[in-house]
Design a protein around this nucleic acid. Sequence first.
DNA 1: ATTGAGAGCGCG
DNA 2: AAAGCGCGCTCTCAAT
Length: 641
Amino acid sequence: MHTVVSQDGADIGLRSVSDTGTPEGEAHVVEASGLTREVMAAESSHVRWTWDDTNGWYPALLAEGVRVDRAHDLRLAHAVLRTSALSARTALAEAGPTAWDRLAAVPPPGGPTAAALVRPDRHPGSEPLFDLGTVSPGRGPSTADGAASGPSASGLRPGNLGPGNLGPANLGPANLGTAGIAAPGVGTDPANPLDPLTELTAQLRAIKDSTDPGRLRLLLAAESAGALAAAEMHHAGLPWRGDIHDQILTEALGPRPRPGARPAKLEALANQIRSALDAPPTLNPDSHPDLLRAMEYAGVGARSLRKWELEKLDHPVIAPLLEYKSLYRLYTANGWNWLDTWAPDGRFRMEYVVGGVVTGRWASTGGGALQLPHNVRRAVVSDPGWTFVVADAAQLEPRVLAALARDERMAAAGRSKDGASTDMYAGIVATGAVDSREHAKVGMLGAMYGGTTGVSAQVLPRLARAFPQAIDLVERAARAGERGEVVTTRLGRSSPRPGESWAAVQGSAFDEDAGADAQSRARSQTRSWGRFTRNFVVQGTAAEWALCWIASIRRRLWALGEDTSDGARPGLAPAPFDRRPHLVFFLHDEIVVHAPAALADVVAQEVRAAAEEAGRLLFGDFPVDFPLSVAVTESYADAKG
DNA sequence: ATTGAGAGCGCG
DNA sequence: AAAGCGCGCTCTCAAT
């Protein structure tokens, strides 16, 4: 059951809609301040809160201490349904772009929005996972699967992941939806282009008419659950010890400098650089042109300032320069300014952009949450009486590939036997396919990224011989991309089509008088798009696994309830998480849960169970493992194993 | 003054 | 050993 939430003037309209899209009962209107009460009252009845954009509604609810269990984010769902090959032949996809496409594609307004209701946040996607019983990915027409029953009987087969040429026009990559625009006046008026009831109906219809409703339902549920989780992580914040961060900075750079001045350590290194180059005090090491000129003059022989290029050179300036670059990076990207801006009050409130990456991975905006350097993670310390449960999925992408291709031998290489190593690369070595872990790793990465040189290319034929199905899957995805076709992930997210300029370049290579360079440009572009689609199926499906994992964790953590042990401490997390374990960080294949210390072990168990659940949701009973490394620790920095 | 590109590094 | 996927952020410098 959905409850469609819409803005109705100054009030809020609520409308119950069945899962088939039929409105039930009367619409009712509550004052803006009444939504919290409505949500609290209805939360026990499994309603799916359906709204234009989770970012426009959920933060305010969280601020009131209210958690939502399930949601349907129309903006995110629309973006998926528009481009998915599975829903290509549905009214929603075949109709031209609508206001919902603009909502999904318009880049966020720069800077803080004035709109009262709206945070400058980006989108969340949301929804709690459905119960296993209710989600079994439906069997699509082409995926009849004899497997008996159960949720694991997903009839999904790798063969379906190939290109689907029926996709709608390319809408462009990232769906940098804007949260803002709390859609004033979104009522149930059919004339309103952003009427959520109309849109929900269209979406349910598109799912039903798609070639695989089960997959899409799962994807949209997971996407929406992600939106809820992202909003919650922003709300709770990642515990951040400013004093420790300051200490890290001071040790590395010297005391915080006056505005406009360089930290002492950087200033000293700048002087060493100048003297090693025999350059005047006016040489600015922050200016690449200046620096390169001075280095050329001194005969250093550098063609660029890239770290790995510099490392190959032998000159007195190299050492101080490398150190300068490293510290400069720390200072500019994660220095005192960052601390003041992003974690001024003991919490880093990251802003995730759910579905912000074409492949379905999350992006982030402001604060660089997904690029948090390892050397500042020491500042991430749990509250007194609380601890972190940090978990990351080991070799997620190769495992996803094995399952996607239903490559039993590769999956077996990643399965632990008798508690032996869960390292998939070691497992691959054990099959005799390659000689060393390093070769296995580089070879697999090359296979998934499209590497054509070095060790990676050397090892590929051996991997192809040992694991023909897995390698064939990525090769086919690459060839599809080279032909300009669309590829699709396990749950149905499709790659964008190459833009018009792509076709133009291809076309010009066929001209009679096409020059050699026009042809080579076309070929290089073709291969490049092939590498993109090659990677898309793996990275995108891994993102889906992670989304399911998060959704499951989120639901399981809530089910654990409050910490009622002796000596339980409320901690500093805001309601509704002040006495409950909750997610505070997510990084592609890694999560951090902040938990009352007494619950750490059970949280770790749930996190592992969630990983198993995610594997089943995507791959049914195909025997693939997704082992985690889990650490219970008070400092994020201590977790990395 | 503001904007965009290029370079470079951080993360997975 | 620096090629081959996906991002965000910060800096400088030239163009507007």
